[in-house]
Write a protein that binds this DNA or RNA. Structure first.
Lengths: 119, 119
DNA sequence: ACTGGCGGTTTCCAGGAGGAAACCATGTCA
DNA sequence: TGACATGGTTTCCTCCTGGAAACCGCCAGT
């Protein structure tokens, strides 16, 4: 019953490693609004490769954060949706993305100051 | 003024990539309570190597999230502390770690179910 | 007949991440 | 004199990540 991400062997560490991932944050952020199809996700998440997207989705599905639904249309439609468990997380990962967007200018300024001081 | 982490070239993407990192989350979580010295951090964050810890700290310092203070003791003491900017972020990254600790059992159960279904 | 979209998997390959361990200066204690 | 601690840097080496591109079946439109 003692879970602590600061202990190397704790399974929490593995989960944290999966969530603390740029792509996972972006995927969960997109799915939070509504279910999205594979290629739609690929188009919306600029710069992600097909392989990485399918890997991330598979891992998120395995962790129970995302569900996969196949429609027998033609061509086959596959829709990814956030699960109730994933929804308990989405606010947090979204806050991370929003922090980055809100504070990017401050961070860039800090970087420039740091780089100037190093010269 | 249009920052969007979903665009590949947006600087937000780089910041997100830095924050969405297992080690950064753990370091910021430790510094949130109080300033900590280098070797103390190394001891508390089980499994991190000296090299990686110093790299993470340097990047966080460059981004203005962590400050470094050197004391002329013997041997030299170096204390890392969270900055006001870092403090605006710490609640979020801490929430991520806490989510992992709180939901690990649900995630592990989902993984087992997924793996059984795949056989 | 051929192109294109969907939703992938697989292969190849280059580059980076990260662990281990050596090395550094300094000083202190035994 | 030699081991130990502090706070690193640097080198070496290996494993993994992740991008590019080919390939897959299926069908619709031109």
């Amino acid at each position: 019953m003692e879970y602590d991400a600061y202990i190397q062997t704790c399974p929490t560490r593995m989960v944290l490693d999966r969530l603390a991932d740029k792509w996972a944050v972006l995927v969960l952020g997109r799915l939070d609004d509504k279910p999205v199809r594979f290629n739609q996700l690929k188009r919306e998440i600029d710069g992600i490769s097909q392989k990485v997207l399918s890997q991330v989705l598979k891992k998120l599905e395995r962790d129970g954060l995302v569900s996969r639904k196949v429609f027998a249309t033609v061509p086959v439609t596959v829709e990814y949706a956030i699960t109730p468990l994933g929804r308990t997380l989405s606010a947090t990962v979204d806050a991370l993305r929003r922090w980055a967007e809100d504070n990017i200018e401050t961070v860039l300024a800090a970087q420039q100051k740091y780089d100037r001081a190093a010269e």
